[in-house]
Amino acid sequence: MTTRTATARYDGFGKEGKGHITTQSGVMTDQYYGFNTRFEDGKGTNPEELIAAAHAGCFTMALSFALARAGFSEGSLETKAAVKLEQDGEGGFTITRSDLTLNASVPGLSQGQFQALADGAHANCPVSKLLKAESNLDATLG
């Protein structure tokens, strides 16, 4: 149906190397990433942050469409994704989970219907399906 692309370039190696990411849309062009943005608090991005953005955006859009199909047209959704990177042995790392925290305001939506729609969106979001890491949803209607 659609294919989206991004390009990563890394000049130099290890901690001293410098990476840059560019997306097809141009919303990110030569965005810096490197050791200090991934494992420290350096200015720039990192793969886990980008996965978190993709998961939060995908899930929120999937829930928005589920709510529209259920007849709701007003409200707001805000989702935070927390992607965890952990060391998995001698020098290796694994993304072990992506946890979504949803805060929603949807007038007229019952708690039961809200939870069912949120769980369905979580299970069927294409990024949730892609991720092999554990993924949990904490949904709050308020």
Rank of each mutant, 00 (worst) to 15 (best):
H55R: 06
H55Y: 13
A56F: 03
A56E: 04
A56D: 03
A56G: 05
A56Y: 01
A56T: 06
G57N: 05
G57R: 05
G57V: 10
C58A: 07
C58P: 04
C58M: 04
C58I: 03
C58N: 04
C58S: 06
C58L: 09
F59A: 01
T60E: 10
T60I: 09
T60Q: 08
T60R: 02
T60D: 12
M61N: 11
M61V: 08
M61I: 07
M61H: 11
A62K: 07
A62N: 03
A62I: 00
L63P: 02
L63M: 12
S64F: 11
S64L: 13
S64T: 14
S64R: 14
S64C: 09
S64A: 15
F65Q: 12
F65I: 13
F65G: 04
F65Y: 12
F65K: 13
A66G: 04
A66D: 09
A66R: 10
A66N: 11
A66Q: 07
L67S: 01
L67Q: 03
L67C: 08
L67T: 01
A68S: 13
A68W: 08
A68K: 14
A68D: 14
A68H: 14
A68G: 06
R69M: 13
R69T: 12
R69S: 15
A70P: 04
A70H: 02
A70C: 05
A70T: 04
A70V: 07
G71D: 08
G71P: 09
G71Q: 06
G71S: 08
F72N: 00
F72E: 03
F72P: 00
S73N: 13
S73K: 14
S73Y: 09
S73E: 14
E74T: 13
G75M: 08
G75D: 08
G75C: 09
G75T: 05
S76P: 00
S76G: 13
S76V: 02
S76E: 15
S76R: 08
S76M: 10
L77A: 06
L77C: 04
L77I: 06
L77Y: 05
L77S: 02
L77T: 01
L77H: 02
E78T: 10
E78H: 11
E78Y: 00
E78P: 00
E78I: 01
E78M: 03
T79N: 02
T79F: 01
T79G: 01
T79V: 08
T79W: 00
T79L: 03
K80E: 15
K80L: 12
K80Y: 06
K80T: 15
K80F: 07
K80S: 12
A81P: 03
A81F: 01
A81S: 13
A81R: 01
A81N: 06
A81E: 05
A81V: 00
A82S: 15
A82G: 09
A82T: 15
A82L: 12
A82F: 10
V83G: 04
V83L: 08
K84V: 13
K84C: 09
K84L: 14
L85N: 04
L85W: 04
L85A: 09
L85H: 07
L85F: 09
L85T: 02
L85Y: 07
L85V: 06
E86S: 10
E86D: 11
E86W: 03
E86I: 03
Q87E: 15
Q87V: 03
Q87C: 06
Q87R: 14
D88S: 15
D88N: 15
G89H: 07
G89Q: 09
G89M: 10
E90F: 14
E90K: 10
E90P: 03
E90N: 14
E90M: 13
